[in-house]
Design a protein around this nucleic acid. Structure first.
Length: 359
DNA sequence: TCTGGGGTCCTAGGACCC
DNA sequence: TCTGGGGTCCTAGGACCC
């Protein structure tokens, strides 16, 4: 029997959870984001397929979405607890399938590793199990590694299954833009284009040395392999361990005084520390993120702490970093990230694959 | 026209040490 | 006037994903 990687991805997950508990919304454009108030500074988390038909999509400012939305559209606030609950039910249903190893990679997606001669059969059983347990629909990508399985899912959506392997990789993906590859964003797409690389096949055919010169020893090799659909194939059920926690807030009114900024930093740093403490993990570093008005984001700095900093020390470190902010500018967003001491037995960083966390 | 909040990992370059 | 090479630690910033 052959080893397969299946990628399970929920269809319009957040919107589907909301519609499931409000059957009267079936068939209506549903937009979930922020506090559900389209006049506020916030973005769309998920839009239902009905809303997508009007050009509304994830990441779009709610104000823009409101302009595009028809009269009967519904704006709803984000309800993390509800999605976490639904996510846990989905994962439990999949974990109960016979002969599968499950690796969670997000709220609404996971990899399944399985040995079978009928991967489509496993995929359909996975879809049926999720639907029966939760009433939610999903799509499944089948691959001979994680990269191909993940990309395959897009061709299966919605409510479908698609297989992508070394055999059909170039037939399916060869002429697609590099941006369609998982891990290639707009910046990398542009840098590739300066080397005359526009399509997946051109990436596969490129000189690896040229990519290493452009992107460095790890990412250069990684991108080159991505062109051929190469990637890791091991599905790892080890529970994910967070390396850091952060709290950030976009303020409806920009912060203008040092006092406002300090109050915000105390609150955010305290909350970030508490998230780490809830796991019993000591905090090691503090990072600051600031977005000045109108829209310039900076990762501001970081400060090394003793590896067992107290709550007050973490807050003081954040305040010290905050003191170096440009006081002449208004602040739209502040974020404090608390980096934790790695747990015993954590994998050595150099042994991790470059895209771990994304894969 | 207005752009969230939560994460991970990589690279470049300076400081410092031997 | 010409100023090594390698390693580690740290900061700063960039890119991407859900």
């Amino acid at each position: 029997m052959a080893e397969w990687v299946l990628h399970v991805d929920m269809d319009q997950f957040i919107a589907a959870v909301e519609v499931l508990r409000r059957p009267e919304l079936i068939g209506r454009p549903v937009i979930v984001g922020g506090r559900g108030d389209p006049t506020e500074r916030a973005v769309v988390s998920t839009a239902s397929y009905e809303a997508r038909a009007f050009g509304i999509g994830s990441g779009m400012p709610l104000k823009i979405a409101a302009r595009k939305a028809p009269e009967d559209a519904v704006f709803l606030p984000v309800d993390h607890a509800a999605y976490e609950q639904a996510s846990a039910e989905v994962m439990a249903a999949l974990r109960a399938l016979p002969g599968v190893v499950l690796e969670v990679i997000g709220w609404d997606e996971c990899f399944l590793g399985t040995a079978t001669d009928d991967p489509e059969g496993v995929a359909e059983r996975a879809r049926a199990a999720v639907l029966a347990a939760t009433g939610l629909h999903c799509s499944v990508g089948i691959g001979d590694n994680k990269v191909r399985a993940k990309i395959a899912t897009e061709f299966g959506k919605p409510r479908g299954v698609f297989r992508l392997t070394a055999e059909n990789w170039f037939a399916v993906m060869g002429e697609k833009p590099t941006r369609d590859l998982w891990g290639v964003g707009p910046k990398v797409q542009k840098r590739l284009a300066t080397h005359g690389i526009h399509t997946v096949r051109e990436l596969a055919d490129a000189e690896e040395s040229a990519l290493v010169a452009e992107f460095g020893p790890k990412m250069g090799v990684w991108y080159h392999g991505l062109g051929s659909g190469r990637g890791p194939a091991v599905v790892d059920a080890t529970p994910w361990v967070a390396r850091s926690h952060s709290r950030e807030t976009t303020y409806q009114q920009n912060l203008t005084t040092a006092g406002q900024v300090d109050d915000a930093l105390r609150e955010l740093a305290g909350a970030a520390f508490d998230d780490c403490a809830a796991e019993g993990r000591p905090v090691m570093r503090v990072h600051l993120k600031v977005r000045y008005a109108p829209f310039e984001t900076k990762t501001f700095g970081r400060k090394l702490l003793a590896p067992t900093a107290e709550r007050g020390e973490v807050i003081d470190a954040a305040l010290a970093l905050g003191a170096t902010l440009d006081r002449s500018r208004e602040v739209r967003l502040l974020g404090v990230r608390a980096e934790m001491v790695p747990p015993e037995g954590a994998p050595d960083p150099v042994e991790r694959t470059p895209m771990r966390g994304r894969i």
